[in-house]
């Protein structure tokens, strides 16, 4: 059993999600329907995209404390510029992705600690978002709204989107050649450099990918909520880190799993719904989310015992 779980690292996140889903269906059988499932996982789509963004950064052994602020900014741009002047909106969103890539290159070139630079950038993104949208408002572009609320036959949009996100990220990062090199930067940047790869460009690429997924997360969020404000996604920073870890990713060594990250994001979203079905006092909702996080990680420890004697150091 333990060998099975440690061989297929994706199993544990998958089993956690399945157990939670079964428990939710048991508590509230009416969610076991097309619309029920869609409601349960609706808000998971932007979180899943933000989690993939965080994963791209953790892949190269950095951590991004600005994901929440960046997604909020992307949401504000989507709800204002992209809606009013599509051409300008696309240009701004593209330049945001480019800014992320530049940030990665600068962090690598000047050997700056990513945790601090992204911390500083979170102020910058937050300020720009306030600048663009001083008061909550804006509107979702029509095509985005209809895409996010479309009703494909048989399977709800939230599930389709999650599967597409997981598949694209898997192809990009696990199956493709460049994805393997990117994970190699997290594993051992020096040996990748010795093999003749320009590490600075690879880091810029990893950060650029993170920026791209962050922008998509902001767009998806606006498609669902139809408006934005500068603080709309601030909690995504912590959610995305938790999602990557829940999905079997690690802080070091480029050990990440895109499919796991999407599952982690779905689990976190479902945990919130599950807890409200438990009729748990709202006081304890966040606490119980923390407890679920701890329990899943405890299960991982039981099944995939790693022989790290430093215990907890990342």
């Amino acid at each position: 059993m333990r060998r099975l779980f440690s061989k297929y690292r994706i199993l544990l996140p998958l089993v956690s999600l399945a157990l939670l889903l079964v428990a939710t269906f048991y508590m509230q059988p009416r969610t076991m329907s097309y619309f029920g499932v869609n409601l349960l996982f609706n808000l998971a789509v932007p979180i899943a995209l933000a989690t993939i963004a965080q994963m791209c950064i953790m892949m190269v052994e950095d951590i991004d404390l600005s994901v929440g602020a960046f997604v909020s900014l992307a949401a504000c741009v989507t709800a204002t510029l992209l809606n009013d002047q599509p051409a300008l909106g696309v240009a701004v969103l593209a330049s945001l992705v480019a800014a992320y890539a530049v940030m990665g290159a600068v962090i690598h070139r000047l050997e700056l600690p990513a945790i601090v630079v992204t911390l500083g950038m979170s102020f910058v993104w937050g300020g720009l978002a306030l600048f663009i949208l001083p008061t909550p408002g804006g509107a979702s572009p029509g095509w985005l709204r209809s895409l996010m609320t479309s009703t494909p036959p048989m399977v709800p949009m939230a599930v389709v989107a999650s599967v597409v996100i997981a598949a694209v990220a898997h192809l990009l990062i696990i199956r493709s050649g460049i994805g393997t090199v990117l994970r190699g930067v997290g594993g051992n940047a020096r040996s990748v450099a010795r093999a003749g790869w320009p590490v600075i460009r690879l880091k810029a690429l990893a950060y650029g990918l993170a920026g791209l997924f962050g922008v998509l997360a902001g767009m998806a969020l606006v498609g669902l909520t139809t408006s934005a404000d500068a603080n709309i996604a601030l909690r995504y920073t912590l959610l995305s880190i938790a999602g990557v870890i829940l999905g079997g990713g690690e802080f070091t060594g480029g050990k990440i799993s895109p499919v796991g990250a999407v599952i982690g994001a779905l689990t976190l979203t479902l945990a919130a719904s599950f807890l409200s079905f438990l009729r748990l006092s709202p006081d304890w909702q966040i606490g119980a989310q923390g407890a679920i996080l701890i329990i899943v990680l405890m299960a991982r420890l039981l099944f995939t015992r790693r022989n790290t004697r430093d215990g907890g150091g990342i």
């Binding site: 006081d283 304890w284 909702q285 989310q289 923390g290 996080l293 990680l297 990342i314």
Partner: peptide, 26 residues
């Protein structure tokens, strides 16, 4: 959490802080 469960400190303190926040709200 960090020592017994061998969680990375970032995750351990993040998860625990959610519990503390809940106790404060309650």
């Amino acid at each position: 959490l960090i020592y017994l469960l061998r969680l990375p400190p970032i995750i351990a303190t993040l998860a625990a802080s959610l519990v503390y926040q809940s106790v404060a709200i309650w």
